[in-house]
Structures are given as structure tokens and as C-alpha cells.
Simulated scan of single mutants.
Amino acid sequence: MYVAVKGGERAIDNAHAWLAEERRGDASVPELSVAQIREQMTLAVNRVMAEGSLYDPDLAALAIKQARGDLIEAVFLIRAYRTTLPRFGASRPMDTGTMACDRRVSATFKDAPGGQVLGPTFDYTHRLLDFKLAADGEVSPAPEVADAKPSKDTPHIMEFLDREGLMQRDTDSKTPPRDLTREPLELPATRDLRLQALTRGDEGFVLGMAYSTQRGYARNHAFVAELRIGKVAVEMDIPELGFAIEIGEVELTECETVNQFAGSKTEPPQFTRGYGLVFGMSERKAISMALVDRALRWEELGEDNLGAPAQDAEFVLYHADNIQATGFLEHIKLPHYVDFQSELELIRKLRREATAAAQDVAREAAE
């Protein structure tokens, strides 16, 4: 018979103390500071901010330290903390056309209006381990370039396709967007809710869904019309002043993909777009988000549903959230003694009945 492990609160306290000791590691090795994590593990910090729905690099770095590098646990910590914060207003929609771009590339136009800016990227690295880093070697500073400053007010490339009437125009909804951080997801979900769910979704899951669309599970070949990374001002209307003021700025990654569209009874052949917007420098996530966004638009565009996973809004949106997934998955390691006992008794009963039936058959055969 299975019995509950004894110890209770004392055992839990000791487990927490042991966890803290494991987190610290060898005390002879200098401890990582929050500032070091924030400045040198920027991409991890950006991911935690995006999936935690809270733009605060210091808190994200602290969560990573506390979680021992487990980014999903860090996201959980950030979301839990976020629920304690008061909300005193809402900012204006951000104009990414005014982004001060550190990086801005296009895979569709070589001579993109406003120019291409490679910026800091892994794209052209050789993926060889740099053992100078293991020796704590100093990194040589980037060369000074006269025009290396972030470019401002860079027009979106999609605007130039819009002028020729080649892009399907997205209609502006008259209904204010709902807030997924305050209301549960309900289906059918409008595009604004789908985009919120994708930007908060687990990067690995969204990447897998996006990859599936490229392998034919949605028949959705996309080109990256534009990928841009930079800082955008956050403005807020102040009723007492009667105008908006800038209260800060955030770093964003924005991706717009362009996809073919054969047209419909009411629409001529044209291009359609997929869209991704993520906190921080998160290229992989933004591109993945844009691909999945476009795949989920099949119904509104009058396309056929090919039965692809990325076209199933319920499958994608309900399984993208890593905190929901983690909670449901990890709860099975907690005590389920009563449940298991009922299963155990059921199996024993079925085996007894099967054995008795077999014995009856054997007796009848012997007679």
C-alpha cells in the first residue's frame, strides 16, 4: 500500500534551501550579478520579457538568475509579478515607422528605400566556438563608422507595394482590442487576440509551427519583406494636459512577410501579409510569428483549410502558452495517491475477472 511521504512544511523548507544552494553553485566562483545577466545575456532577457508580457530588463534578468537559467520558470516569475502591478493607463499605439533602426533588412528588395542595415547579427558568423571567451578575453570594439547611428523615420517597405495596389489592405477594427493578460482566451479569436497569444507564446512552439508551414503544412510560401529592430517611443495621453507626452522607449523586433494570394470573387490577385512584433531583439520569434499569423488567416481570406496544424487556431493558440503547458504537464509529478489507488484496484479487478474467465473456459474444454 502506498502512503504519503512524511515531512510536510519542514521538508518543503529544506527543499527550498537546497534549491538556493544549487542555484548559487560553487561559492569559490564569483556570483553572477543581475547587471551582468542583463547586459551579456540580452537575448534570454528579451525572451523572458516577451513571453512574460512585461518590458523590464532588470526584472527579467533577476528572474533568470532566480530560475537558474530556466527561461520558462523565469517567464512564470515575471507573469506572477506582473499581476501585482497596478495599471494606471494605456499608451498610444506605437508607430514603428519612427523606429530608430539598429537593424533593418529586406529579403524582397535589394535596394530597399531607406537602405539596408545589417546591425548586430549572427547571420554571417561561422558558428565556431570562440575560445577567447573561455579565457575571459576582451572583445575588440566595433569599428567606428560615420553612418553607423540608428536610422530614424525609416518607411515601411510594404508602403511601396501599397501604393501600387499590390497589397491587400488590412481593415481597421472599430472595436478596441481586448487584453489577453486580463481576459482568458476565447475562440473564435480575432486577429488582435491571435497576435497577442503568439507574441506571448513559447518561442520553440511558435518556431515549430512556422517551420511546418514552410514544409507544406499550410501551402504558405512567404518572403520577408522587412525585418527591423530598434527603439520606439512610448507616448501616453495625459487628460490634465490635453496632449500626449513621451514616457519612455522600448526596443522591438518587427517582421512583415509578403505572401501570394490568388484572389477571390471580390478581391483581385495580390499579396497578403503576415505580421510579428516582439519585445527586444527576437528575430526568430518575430519571423515565426509572422508565418503562423498568415497561416491562421486562411478563413478570412477565403482560402482552403488543408488540415494543417498551423491553420488550426484552437490547436495553435491553446498550446502556444508555455506557462499553461508547464502547469498542466508538471502537475502530474505531484501526489496522485488516491487516483492511482483507484486505477490499481481497477486493474487488479480486471485481471481477476480475466483469470476467472480463462479458468471457466479451461474447465468447459476439459469436460
Rank of each mutant, 00 (worst) to 15 (best):
Y124Q: 06
Y124T: 05
T125S: 15
T125V: 15
R127Y: 11
L129E: 11
F131Q: 13
F131A: 02
L133V: 15
L133T: 12
A134I: 06
D136N: 14
D136W: 03
G137E: 13
E138T: 06
V139R: 08
S140C: 05
S140G: 04
S140L: 11
S140H: 08
P141T: 07
P141N: 05
A142I: 02
E144R: 13
V145R: 14
V145T: 11
A146C: 04
A146K: 15
D147L: 10
D147K: 12
A148R: 12
A148H: 12
S151D: 03
D153H: 09
D153N: 15
T154Q: 08
P155R: 04
H156I: 01
H156F: 12
H156P: 01
I157R: 04
I157T: 09
F160I: 11
L161G: 13
L161P: 00
G165R: 01
G165Y: 02
L166R: 01
L166Q: 03
M167V: 09
Q168D: 06
Q168G: 13
Q168C: 07
D172V: 14
D172G: 01
D172S: 05
S173L: 14
S173E: 13
K174N: 14
T175L: 12
P176M: 07
P176Q: 07
P177N: 09
R178Q: 08
R178T: 11
R178G: 12
R178L: 05
R182A: 13
E183D: 14
P184F: 07
P188Y: 07
A189T: 08
A189D: 06
T190R: 04
T190Q: 08
R191P: 00
R191G: 03
D192K: 02
L193R: 06
L193T: 05
R194I: 15
R194H: 07
L195H: 03
L195M: 06
L195V: 01
L198K: 00
L198E: 00
R200K: 12
R200D: 02
G201A: 15
E203W: 09
E203P: 03
G204H: 08
F205G: 01
V206K: 00
L207N: 13
L207K: 12
L207Q: 09
Y211Q: 15
T213L: 04
G216H: 05
Y217A: 08
Y217L: 10
N220S: 10
V224I: 15
E226A: 04
L227S: 02
L227C: 10
L227T: 05
I229F: 05
K231D: 15
K231C: 12
K231V: 08
V234P: 04
E235T: 04
M236N: 01
M236L: 11
D237S: 10
D237P: 00
P239L: 02
P239M: 06
P239R: 06
E240M: 05
L241V: 01
L241N: 01
A244S: 15
I245Y: 00
I247S: 09
G248D: 14
G248W: 13
E249W: 00
E249K: 11
E251Y: 04
E251V: 12
E251K: 13
T253H: 05
T253L: 07
C255N: 04
V258A: 07
N259S: 01
Q260W: 05
F261L: 03
A262S: 11
G263N: 01
G263Q: 10
K265I: 07
K265G: 12
K265E: 13
T266Q: 14
T266F: 10
E267Q: 13
P268T: 04
P269Q: 03
P269M: 04
P269A: 13
